[in-house]
């Protein structure tokens, strides 16, 4: 366990929006390594670019911005950055990447418990029925599964439409567009939930900064990720 020495540099207005980071002197634990944090934010920025340039295709009123083809170019650049960075991470840290992927598929009894307890927990703040959670809680696993599954779908269908247009039969192209849209809807809706829970939900105030500085307060870790907290503090 370590403590925060420096005063965090972020401005109060951001504290107001995202909640406050751990205060100086508070006990903290490392939650996200630097490469993971960089991967996350590269992904987030690329995701926003992809989302906006993609959305232009669905709202005729916005389509003026898609005219001329620039939005399509940015869409592709962002796609390459996103996939490229993830691939880079995989190649440079294959162990942590693999164990992170495995984490999404590690389900147990406490995950069922989480699903049962979640409505009261997230609506009313009822803590009694919430079973102890590991490094990722069940909700995070669900989001992570969505990212992996829908991400693969987006890459596959996107590549088909980008590189194989005119080569694959037009039916395959149309279905690619269809499933690209399915992935878009999945990532958009679940992405909204993700952003909300990790930045704005009253119970998660301040947790946003863990993806920034990598640390969470020991108190938070213990109450939200008891199993994981016990593991890291035992070491």
């Amino acid at each position: 366990m370590e403590t925060v020495e420096r005063k965090p540099k972020s401005t109060p207005i951001l504290h107001y929006i995202f909640g406050a980071p751990p205060v100086p002197g508070e006990d903290v634990v490392e939650r996200y390594s630097r490469p993971v944090r960089i991967l996350h934010w590269v992904n987030a920025v690329a995701w926003i670019v992809l989302f906006i340039t993609g959305l232009l295709f669905f709202v005729p009123q916005f389509s003026g911005a898609a005219v001329g083809g620039w939005s399509g170019l940015f869409h592709r650049i962002a796609a390459v950055v996103m996939v490229g960075w993830a691939a880079l991470y995989f190649v440079t840290s294959p162990r942590s990447a693999l164990s992170a992927v495995r984490e999404a598929f590690k389900w147990g009894r406490d995950d069922i418990g989480w699903l049962q307890a979640a409505p009261s927990y997230y609506m009313l703040g009822g803590e009694d029925t919430m079973p102890p959670q590991d490094h990722m809680n069940t909700g995070q696993k669900l989001w992570w599964l969505t990212v992996l599954g829908a991400g693969a779908l987006m890459i596959l269908t996107g590549a088909l439409m980008w590189f194989f247009k005119g080569i694959i039969p037009s039916g395959a192209f149309m279905w690619s567009a269809f499933f690209h849209d399915v992935g878009f809807i999945a990532l958009l809706t679940f992405g909204l939930v993700h952003v909300y829970l990790s930045a704005f939900h009253p119970k998660m105030r301040g947790i946003f900064w863990s993806m920034w500085g990598g640390k969470v307060s020991a108190k938070y870790a213990e109450s939200h990720h008891k199993k994981w907290y016990d593991k890291v503090t035992k070491e």
Binding site: Y122, M123, L124, G125, L192, V193, Y196, F200, H201, P202, K203
Partner: peptide, 15 residues
């Protein structure tokens, strides 16, 4: 999510 925010904020403050 909006609804959750409104309810959760009140409840959690009370708690």
């Amino acid at each position: 999510l909006g609804l959750n925010y409104v309810i959760a904020r009140r409840k959690i403050k009370i708690n």
